[in-house]
Every structure is written in C-alpha cells, then in structure tokens.
Computed example of a mutant assay.
Amino acid sequence: MPNLPPPLRVPLLVLGMVSLVLGVLAGLARLAVDLPAPVMARAGGHGALMICAFLGTVISLERAVAVARGWAYLAPLAAGVGGLVLLAGVSPLAAQIAFVAAAALLSAASLWVMRLQFAPFTATLALAALCWLAGNLVWLQSQDMTLAVPWWMAFLVLTIAGERLELTRLLPTPKAARRGFALLAGLLPLAAACGLIHPVPGRVLYALALLALAFWLLRYDIARTTVGQTGLTRFIAVCLLSGYAWLGAAGLFGLLDVLAPAPGLRDAFLHAVFLGFVFSMIFGHAPIIFPAVLKVKIPYHPAFYLPLAALHLSLLLRLAGDLGGRPESAQIGGIANGLVLLLFILTMAASVLRGRRQ
C-alpha cells in the first residue's frame, strides 16, 4: 500500500481537530461552564477526546508520514473515527475498540521502525505507543477511564521524550545519563502497572519518575544550547524548557496529592502535564511538524510567543484557582486555556497564509 499524498492527509488532521474543539468544550463543561446540552453530555469523555482522539490522531499521523507506508495511516484514521463515535454518543465500546485498534497500529509502526533502526529513541517511541495500547485495553476491560490516565500520560510523555532523545545524539551525553534515561522511561509504565494493584506506591513512583525525567530533559536536552540562538530555533527551545518546568511541577503536584492530599491537587497534576507540558511541546514543534505532514510553509514570526505566553498565564490562573479553593478562578483559567488554543490555531493559520505569499 503506497504512502498517502499530503492532500489526503488533511481529512485525517481534520478528524483530530474536531475532537480537539469538542474536547475543549467538554472540558469547560466539567468546569461548570454553561454550554448546550449535547456538549454537557460529553463532559465525561473530555480526557479520551483530547488524548486518544486528538493527540492520538496527530501523533499517529506524524508517525505514518515518517514510516511512509499506507497501512500506517489506518492508525490516525481509527483514532479519528473513535473520536467521532464518542461524540455521536454511540456505545462507548465502539470508541474503545477503535482506540485499541489505533494504538495497536501505532505500536506496530513504531516497532517496525525500531527493527529497522534500533536506537534508544526508537525504543522509547515504541514503548510510548505500547503504553497507549495498554491504557486503552485497561479502559476497555475496566470501563474506568481514570485507570487508563497514567498509561495515556506515559504515552505522551515518552513520545515527546523519545523525540527529544533523538536530538541529544548531537550532544556528548554521558553514558550514565543515557542509562538513567532508559531507567526513567521504564519506570513510568512500571509505576502505572503498580498503581493498578497498589495505588499509593504506584502514584508515588510515577510522580518521582516524572520529576526525575523533567530534570533529565532540562539538563541534557539540546534546547539548553539552542535557546541562545534566534528566530524559530530559540522559540522552540523556549517552548521546550518551559514545558519541562511544567513537567517537573506536575511531579511535585503528584507527590503532594499522595502525601498531603488537598482539593485541586489532582487537577493541577493532570493539567500541568496535559496542558503545560504537552501543549508547550505542540506549540514548539508545530512549525516543523505541520510542514512535514501537510507540505505547507510556516515561516517564523515573533507573534508565535503570544499564544505560548498566554498558555502559561492562563494555566497559572487555573491552577491558582484549583489550589486556592477558588472555583471561579479555575473556571476563568479554563476558559482562557480554550481561547489560547484558538489563538494558537489562528496564529499558525496566519503563518501558513504568509508562507503562501512568500
């Protein structure tokens, strides 16, 4: 089956974007924002829409382009269709099966790449895909989405860390540091599995692994060097370093949530990862990934910093509301988070139009 040409990749991306928009609205419904009844009814699917349907589609699409094999595009198709099924209100089982199929196909593509080019970063990407598959199977078997969240988080964290690990080959990373990375990467799924049987030790180990991985990335990522450059290179580095700070904060929130539980810590932990860390990475890599996937130009502009700054400020407002017991501040911060994503999309679209004129 031949590689899919760029114009035919657009519908797959659109599937993911539909889940992004409605997933954000579902998240606002969870914050008690008054929205139409059909959106309120999808509030419980917020996590699956954002992680499996949106991010699963985008990551699988990127991997399919890299693999350059037609069958690999079945993964983003399955993830996107799973999102539509979830939104349609059909039996959750159909969406769960679609997400399991998507993760299995992404795992197959990642393992195929690892077989062709065995390296620490390809092994990490394959492990990440397998974590997504494990999380989807846990959700399917238990019908409890919360049990899948640590696996889904590992999927995203390890995918990003694996892609960054590829670039650390340009730096003289000590052998002990490389072994340390492998240990931390393995700890995440181990802690997720432990949490299914022994929740408290598993959550402590998971939070410690996130915290240690954040320090590893801050110490050894090439972004520490490239932040001193200019233009797009510096912007990407700023996105990465700020994202690692959020990942470290998430590790601390996760520890506190177990050792000294307080209202709002769980939400702070989840959104420090899924919004602060993951979307900082998306903002930084979008000017590189979208041109590769869709064959469009996205020339750099200093305006790229606007959605990035707004992301951090709105998330700080949300977490201040969570931790300070001020639900109205958390709600305003959540609405601002959604507007930030819209601002980012508009910024990228404006850059695409600017690239066409050049």
Results as ranks from 00 to 15, higher is better:
F118P: 12
R164A: 07
A148L: 00
C131E: 07
A154W: 01
V138F: 03
S91T: 03
W152P: 00
E163D: 05
L190C: 15
T173V: 15
A119T: 07
L171Q: 12
A103L: 05
G162K: 10
V157H: 04
S91H: 07
A148E: 00
P150Y: 06
L188N: 10
P150W: 07
T168V: 11
M114S: 14
M153R: 02
A176T: 04
Q117A: 15
A103P: 02
L183A: 15
G83M: 09
L86D: 08
T146F: 09
L190M: 14
A177T: 08
I160F: 08
R178M: 11
I160L: 09
L84K: 01
L77A: 15
C131F: 12
A128E: 01
A95P: 02
L167C: 11
L105W: 01
T168R: 09
G180F: 07
V149A: 14
Q96M: 13
D144Y: 01
T146N: 11
L187F: 00
F118C: 09
V85F: 13
M145L: 11
A129M: 10
L156G: 06
S110N: 11
T159K: 08
L77H: 03
L171W: 06
A177M: 05
E166T: 09
A182Y: 09
A129Q: 03
Q141C: 11
P189R: 06
G89Q: 12
W139R: 01
A108G: 07
F155Q: 05
A109K: 00
A109I: 00
R178P: 02
A123L: 15
K175T: 13
L167Q: 10
V157Y: 03
V149P: 01
T168W: 06
R115M: 12
N136L: 08
E166F: 09
T159N: 14
P150C: 13
M114L: 06
G135D: 07
Q143R: 09
T124K: 08
P120Q: 15
A177I: 05
R164Y: 01
L167A: 11
F121Y: 14
F118K: 05
A78H: 05
S91I: 07
L147R: 14
L140T: 12
A98H: 08
L125M: 11
F181T: 06
Q96E: 14
L133S: 13
F121P: 00
R169Q: 13
M114R: 10
Q143F: 08
V85D: 12
R178T: 08
A191S: 13
N136Y: 02
L183I: 12
V138R: 00
A95M: 13
M145H: 07
N136S: 14
E166Q: 15
V85K: 03
V157E: 04
E166P: 07
A88F: 01
L87K: 04
L167W: 11
A161N: 06
F99A: 13
A78V: 01
L111V: 04
A191L: 13
G83S: 12
A94D: 06
